[in-house]
């Protein structure tokens, strides 16, 4: 994913703002890291350049 996505991306569950943590970045592309909801705390991984925005099953 690219940083511009953060302007429109939000938490799948509560639609809250997301905080980005980068583990690996290559040529402006975020390859791995985490997106954490500032509102409800849900944490979504970024794996192989693709954020996994599926709400985890309880």
């Amino acid at each position: 994913m690219y940083r511009d996505l953060l302007k429109i991306l939000c938490c799948s569950s509560c639609k809250g703002e997301l905080k980005l943590e980068i583990e690996k970045e290559e040529n402006d592309e975020i390859i791995s890291g985490y997106l954490t909801c500032k509102n409800c705390g849900l944490k979504y991984p970024i794996e192989d350049g693709i954020p996994v925005m599926i709400i985890p099953q309880k």
Binding site: M1, L9, Y44, I50, M53, I54
Partner: peptide, 10 residues
């Protein structure tokens, strides 16, 4: 690209 569900679009 995003892995996600159409019912809860992020």
């Amino acid at each position: 690209l995003i892995e996600g569900n159409v019912f809860t679009l992020p």
